[in-house]
Design a protein around this nucleic acid. Structure first.
Lengths: 214, 214
DNA sequence: ATGCTTGGATAGTGGCACTCCCCAATGAAG
DNA sequence: CTTCATTGGGGAGTGCCACTATCCAAGCAT
C-alpha cells in the first residue's frame, strides 16, 4: 500500500504521516524507487497505535518515539520493556527538593510503600517517575492544607493494586494476539484515560446518589 | 500583602501572577490607589490552587478559569457545582460519529452502565464528556483489534466506584476546612494524578512479582 | 529629590503538532 | 509519446499556549 492508502485507512492525513516519518515515529516504507514506497499492515497498525497514544493518551510526539523505542527493544525482557516504556511517559516536572512540603510528602509516601509491602516500588523510590508524581501531588495537597497521610492513601493504593491485577490478566489473555510489549503500553496509555473517565462517572453517580440535586 | 509578597509566598513570579490576573484566574487585589493593591490569604490560597491545577493536574489556563467559575457559582447546589466543574475539565476531542468503532464502542458502553446500574450516568450518556472519553478510548482499543467488551470493564468500573466512595468520604471529613466545592475539584484534579501514579507503581510491582526480571 | 515598586499594557519567546508549499522523479492514461 | 496527477522529501509557515520581558506613568519611602 502506498502513502495515500495508508492515510485513508488510518484516517491520518498524508502530511501528518510524513511528519511522523520525519520524526522517526513510524518506520519508513519499503522503498521501491525514488518516488514510491510500499507500506504494509504492520505500518498501519503502528500508525493507529501512535494516533491512539497521541489523541487518547495525550502523549507528546517526542515521548511516543521514546516509548516505542523501548517497546521494540528486543534486548530487554518483557517486564523491563514495560518498565522502561512507562518511565518514558510524561510525568510531572521535577519538584524543588528544598521545599518542606515536598520533603514531608516524600517521607510519607515512602512510609506508604512500606505499609503496603510493595518491595519493588520501595527499592525504586529514588528514581521512579511515578513515585515522583505521587510525591508532587501529595505535596500540592499538603500545601493547600489537606493532611493527606499514608493512612488516607492505603485504601486507594490497594484498589489500584487490584486494577493492576486486572491489567495483568488482560495482558495474559492477549499475549497471542500481539506478543510484543505493545499490549503493556496500551495497558498504561489507553487504560488510564478509561480509568479516569470511569472515575469521573463514578464520582457523578455516587455524588448524585448521596446528595441528589439539592 | 502586596504583589511581591504574594509572589514570594506562593513561589510564582510576579510576571506570571500578573498574567493570571489578566486572564481572570485570580481576583484583583483590593485597590488602595493607582499603584498599590492589597492581597489577602484567600488570594494566596487561590493562587496555590491554580498552580496545583496547572502543574500537577495539567489543566489548561483557560479551563482553570472555567472550572473556578463553576466552583464559585453560589447559585448551584454542591453536587451540581462539582458536576459543572468536572465537565469543564479537558477531555478527548469529539469523535467522528460515523466511525463504526465509535458507534460500536458507544453501544457497548451504554450496556456497561446498564449492567452497573449507574442510573444517573446512564441518563447523561448523550452529553457527559466523561462518557465520551470512555467511548473514544474504547473505540481506539477496538480499532487496534482488542475486544474490549463491557464484561472486561465491569470489574474496572466497580473498583473505580469504590475509589469514588473514598473520595466522597474524604470530602465529608473536610467540609469544615474549606466548605466550598473546592475540595471536590481537588478530588478530581489532584487525586487523579495520584491515582495514575499509584496505578503505575502497582503495575510495576505486580509485573515484577509475577515475572521477575526474566 | 531620588530611586524603587506598583498596576497596567503590549509585544515577544519557545515549544509543540501539525500544515502548506515546492520540488524533481515517476507511473498511469489517452 | 505526451500529458498529468501522484510520490517521497524537505523547508518554511501556522496557530495555540503559557508564560516572560519591557515599557510606562504614578506614587511611596528615604
Amino acid at each position: 500500500m502506498r502513502l495515500a492508502e495508508l492515510s485513508e485507512r488510518s484516517g491520518v492525513s498524508t502530511a501528518t504521516i510524513k511528519y511522523y516519518l520525519r520524526e522517526g515515529l513510524l518506520a519508513p516504507g519499503h522503498q521501491i524507487n525514488t518516488t514510491t514506497a510500499e507500506y504494509d499492515e504492520e505500518h498501519l497498525r503502528r500508525l493507529k497505535l501512535i494516533r491512539a497514544m497521541i489523541q487518547v493518551g495525550r502523549v507528546p510526539v517526542a515521548t511516543v518515539k521514546e516509548v516505542l523505542g523501548h517497546v521494540d527493544d528486543d534486548s530487554l525482557p518483557r517486564a523491563m520493556r514495560l518498565g522502561a516504556a512507562v518511565w518514558a511517559l510524561p510525568q510531572v516536572p521535577e519538584p524543588d527538593a528544598d521545599d518542606e512540603f515536598v520533603q514531608g510528602a516524600r517521607i510519607a509516601m515512602e512510609e506508604l510503600l512500606k505499609t503496603l509491602g510493595w518491595s519493588n516500588a520501595q527499592a525504586m523510590t529514588a528514581v521512579s517517575p511515578s513515585f515522583r508524581s505521587l510525591v508532587v501531588a501529595t505535596a500540592a495537597l499538603r500545601r493547600l492544607g489537606y493532611d493527606w497521610s499514608p493512612e488516607t492513601l492505603v485504601p486507594y493504593a490497594r484498589l489500584m493494586r487490584q486494577v493492576a491485577e486486572l491489567d495483568m490478566e488482560f495482558m495474559e489473555s492477549h499475549v497471542s494476539e500481539a506478543e510484543k510489549a505493545e499490549v503493556a503500553v496500551l495497558g498504561v496509555v489507553l487504560v488510564e484515560p478509561m480509568l479516569q473517565a470511569l472515575h469521573r462517572l463514578a464520582q457523578e453517580e455516587e455524588s448524585t446518589r448521596r446528595y441528589g440535586f439539592e
